[in-house]
Design a binder for these strands. Structure first.
Length: 934
DNA sequence: TGATTCACG
DNA sequence: GACGTACGTGAATCAG
């Protein structure tokens, strides 16, 4: 072993630069056998190989290392929280390749070095300084200008791309100053890429001029008064602090603590088995062969997988059988360490949390399971109770074999928040919300439920059981088998830990397997953008909204409840009087028998089950014949309002927060809409005056205001755009009353003679079109004869022939592809379109409606994803989404600022991906409660 | 558990 | 020619 010193030559390779160059230079290659993205790894290996070949000559290095960044938080972030803040997130298909580039470096038998919390540049600086002091030469393989400050005294750079050495002269050329003054120039000029502020208005040229004139930055700042240009002088005086901070940011640290020395970096011969093993594992055929030749070894045979017939047919990875007995019960920190280490090494980990209930806002964490490799999963029990010896209900003592909660969380937090490790979950919103309450903010993450939703929306549900059975042919352990059901149901913390291990670890195992199947399919199925841009980023936004909740005034609801109960009792007595007997008014069956058998009213129609239909439309028709149906309608309305709203809503007021927290289901609707549950806050009454008053109970707290913003006619606007209806588009551009305009066009009535009745009919037709109009449906809606309704539709299509074309084209597309798409590329599968019989009609109308409803849903999703940044700094919170409306809570006084910011996000939400021919218009309202805000 | 009804966009 | 139909949701209730 040679002691590093005079005559030694150290090469330092900027690994991250290699990776990004490789990633961007190559098309997104995937490994044939499992679809794993490996383009960047391939490029990286080729660059390493080229490097090795090019440096075999007489000037070969004696020592070499590839240096990588590790962790995203460095001392520079502590100096300046905006450091590198506008850097784009790592592309999704690159992330899993990062650990493989480390593996590749090691396979080449080159020292692979990284230090947590330090940028590669600082490690390079430290090693270069050490080598220089030892009297050796250094070549930094990089073209990064941030490293140029190190050049000089035996240190040079080499731009592998341009095949060019960069020495003192090269640096002078670039910065106009000697290497030792480069940081001064950078401090002044700033750097938009790393978000180093610098001095506004001063670029590299000016900076070099000033430094050369004054000798150093410090001198310049001290003598700033002498500068002749007034603006420049003022900048340097005003921004002194910012410039000094910038210098600290660009100055590389030569004193990074390292747990190795230069001697450890000595050049080593590659081991043929190791490198060829790695390359064949990656399935790099030509590179494997080339390196085998150069090493004089036999190239291993790489199994030829059958070329993929269709992108959809990407072969599933080979998995070992799912075996609940194989999972690890993590009892101590030592048990946990290998799982955390492997997660770091691989760059991903599947995570699942177990809790005492399904309500994330009102349940406790019981355990966490992890899985890094299919078949290798663990469960970390945290709050299981021990089985009691003496009584039936178990004790409150903690069970044996658990790491203390806080200790385990402290171990998990760095992993779950590590930007270099992808966290994989099934319905991550749940885990995100649970762990947020324990101070852990999971990022970055993938969600198998949302991947399935993006690819398989309309085909089947996206719950884990469904996905496991469909894609893994495995039926997971039912939760019922652990918790039981009904009255005797227990909570998860009462489940014996040994049983919990099997169940919980299996969930993580299944989730990881699903991810490995789904992830490579996103791109061939062309839903990467939808998944990455619309589904996944919505998760933290919704989590915030749900955790914020909305204030609901219990007293108001309670008062309404009593009033409703009184009125109902009165109505019920009347109804019984009219019927001549007492019966359950809430029973459609009993009501039908009273109306049609006992009273022999006309129009009794029995449905599939043999019961009379007693829906609102039937009762409305009967109301002309008799008083009883009208009373029942009134009673039903009150009953609905009381049971679903004034009573149930009170149950949902959270004990801790005093607010109501709904839960949105991202994959709830096939069209891309959200759905809202527990409670559903997307169907709070508004249409009837009586129901509308329920919104008075949704209030702003003291000192705050509710602001509601809703898209005006968004679906009709989208229809006008998609079907390309010139007159409709023009009407929207002119801000006309669209229903009146439609009526005028259809019935040849001048706008000034428009009557509310004609307008109402046109409005019904406009909506009918969005739903896939039929004569029957319109007739029923407008209560006109079917022939007349058909006549309206015919005339509509005559005036707007593009609508008919749109409908025909959409159905034809659906028939051909068994799916339709929104303007943003969301896929809505429509397998039923191939059905025969009445189901075909349903499928057709659904196919016509889906792109319109779905595009509207995409637009508001985009607005929501952008909203947190747009209202950052305003004292406002986004609380609710109701399909085309967003509800905010804002400190009184800041309403106008909020409306301005939020409105502009909403109105511009389609751009830049989609340029609509019609403007999107958002109406705003505000008030102390939701009724006023509307 | 399924059907019915009705609240919303 | 007959059939059955507006699109998308969730919750409460009855009845089996």
């Amino acid at each position: 072993m040679t002691q590093f010193g005079k005559g030694c030559h150290l090469h330092l390779i900027d690994g991250s630069a290699f990776i990004f160059r490789a990633y961007h230079a190559l098309p997104p290659l995937t490994r044939k056998s499992d679809g794993m993205p490996i383009g960047a790894v391939s490029g990286f290996c080729n660059m390493l190989q080229k490097y090795v070949e090019d440096n075999a000559g007489p000037d070969a290095p004696t020592h070499v290392a590839v240096i990588f960044d590790k962790g995203s938080h460095t001392f520079r972030n502590d100096l300046y929280d905006q450091y590198k803040a506008n850097r784009e997130a790592m592309p999704e298909d690159l992330r899993p390749q990062i650990p493989l580039t480390r593996e590749a470096t090691i396979a080449f038998n080159i020292a692979c070095k990284e230090t947590e919390g330090y940028e590669a540049d600082d490690i390079i600086a430290t090693l270069a300084c050490q080598a220089r002091e030892a009297g050796g030469r250094v070549t930094i393989i990089s073209s990064d200008k941030d490293l140029m400050q190190l050049v000089g005294d035996g240190v040079e750079m080499f731009d592998a791309m341009k095949n060019r050495r960069i020495d003192r002269e090269g640096v002078m050329e670039k910065f106009g100053v000697a290497p030792d003054r480069v940081v001064d120039v950078q401090a002044l000029a700033g750097d938009s890429v790393d978000n180093v502020p610098g001095a506004p208005g001063i670029g590299i040229k000016t900076a070099a001029l000033l430094i050369n004139e004054y000798g150093s930055l410090e001198e310049l700042l001290d003598r700033a008064e002498e500068i002749k240009q007034p603006k420049r002088r003022q900048t340097l005086i005003d921004k002194r602090e910012q410039i000094e901070l910038s210098k600290k940011l660009v100055q590389l640290d030569c004193n990074t603590p390292l747990d190795y020395t230069l001697d450890d970096l000595e050049v080593r011969e590659p081991d043929p088995d190791t490198i060829l093993g790695f390359l064949s594992k990656m399935e790099f055929r030509s590179l494997t062969k080339r390196i085998a030749d150069s090493l004089g070894a036999d190239a291993p045979v790489i199994a030829e997988t059958a070329p993929q017939a269709a992108p959809e047919a990407a072969a599933a990875p080979e998995f070992p059988a799912i075996d609940p007995e194989s999972y690890t019960w993590v009892k101590t920190a030592e048990d946990l360490a290998p799982f955390i280490a492997e997660a770091h090494e691989r760059g991903w980990v599947a995570v699942d949390t177990e809790t005492t209930g399904l309500n994330e806002m009102a349940c406790d964490l019981v355990g966490v399971s992890l899985c890094t490799t299919a078949g290798k999963a663990c469960y970390i029990p945290l709050a299981h109770r021990s089985a009691a010896t003496d009584d039936l209900f178990g004790s409150d003592d903690l069970a044996e074999g658990q790491i203390p909660m806080q200790e385990a969380l402290d171990l998990l937090k760095p992993l779950l928040e590590d930007p270099a490790v992808m966290k994989i979950g099934q319905n991550m919103k749940y885990d995100l919300k649970v762990l947020a309450r324990y101070g852990i903010n999971i990022a970055p993450f993938d969600d198998t439920m949302l991947m399935s939703y993006a690819m398989h929306g309309g085909l089947h549900g996206h719950g884990m059981d469904t996905l496991s059975e469909r894609y893994l042919s495995h039926e997971p352990i039912p939760i019922k088998s652990l918790l039981g059901s009904g009255k005797s149901m227990i909570t998860f913390d009462r489940v014996p830990v040994a049983d919990a291990v099997k169940y919980a670890a299996e969930d993580a195992d299944i989730t990881l397997r699903l991810w490995q199947i789904f992830k490579p399919q996103l791109s061939p199925k062309k839903v990467t953008r939808v998944y990455e841009g619309l589904e996944r980023p919505l998760v933290p936004v919704l989590a915030q909204m749900e955790m914020a909740g909305v204030e609901v005034d219990r007293a108001t609801l309670s008062r309404m409840s009593s009033a409703f109960a009184q009125k109902m009792a009165a109505l019920e007595a009347e109804i019984h009087e009219l019927a001549g007997e007492t019966f359950n008014v809430g029973s459609p069956k009993q009501l039908g028998e009273i109306l049609f058998d006992k009273m022999s009213l006309p129009g009794g129609k029995k449905g599939k089950t043999g019961a009379y239909a007693t829906g609102a439309d039937v009762l409305e028709d009967l109301a002309t014949e008799h008083d009883l149906p009208g009373r029942v309608l009134d009673w039903r309305q009150l009953s609905k309002l009381k049971s679903t709203y004034t009573d149930a809503l009170q149950e949902h007021i959270n004990k801790d927060t005093g607010r109501v927290h709904t839960s949105y289901v991202i994959s709830g609707a096939v069209t891309g809409r959200l759905s809202s549950t527990d409670p559903n806050l997307q169907n709070i009454p508004i249409r009837s005056e009586e129901g509308r008053r329920i919104r008075e109970a949704f209030v702003a707290p003291e000192g705050k205001t509710l602001v509601a913003l809703d898209y005006s006619q968004i679906e009709l606007r989208i229809l006008a755009h998609m079907a390309d209806i010139g007159s409709l588009k023009q009407a929207f551009r002119d801000g006309q009353d669209i229903h009146a305009m439609t009526a005028s066009e259809m019935f040849n009535v001048p706008m000034e003679d428009m009557t509310p009745e004609i307008r109402r009919q046109a409005k019904a037709i406009n909506f009918g079109v969005i739903y896939g109009i039929s004569g029957f449906g319109l007739a029923r809606n407008l209560r006109i004869p079917r022939g007349e309704a058909q006549g309206f539709i015919d005339r509509y299509f005559e005036r707007f022939p593009g609508i008919r074309d749109y409908m025909d084209d959409t159905v034809a597309f659906a028939k051909e592809h068994l799916r339709v798409e929104t303007l943003f590329g969301r896929v809505i599968n429509t397998p039923e379109i191939a059905a025969k019989g009445p189901r075909a009609g349903f499928a057709k109308r659904a196919a016509i409606n889906a792109p319109i409803q779905g595009t509207a849903a995409d637009i508001i999703r985009r607005a929501m994803v952008r909203m947190p940044d747009a209202i950052d700094g305003l004292p406002a919170k986004m609380l609710l989404q109701v399909h085309d409306e967003l509800l905010f809570e804002v400190e009184t006084g800041a309403e106008d600022d909020l409306i301005k910011a939020a409105k502009s996000v909403m109105e511009g939400a389609a751009e830049p991906v989609v340029k609509l021919d019609v403007p999107l218009v958002v109406d705003a309202g505000m008030g102390r409660n939701w009724a006023e805000a509307h």
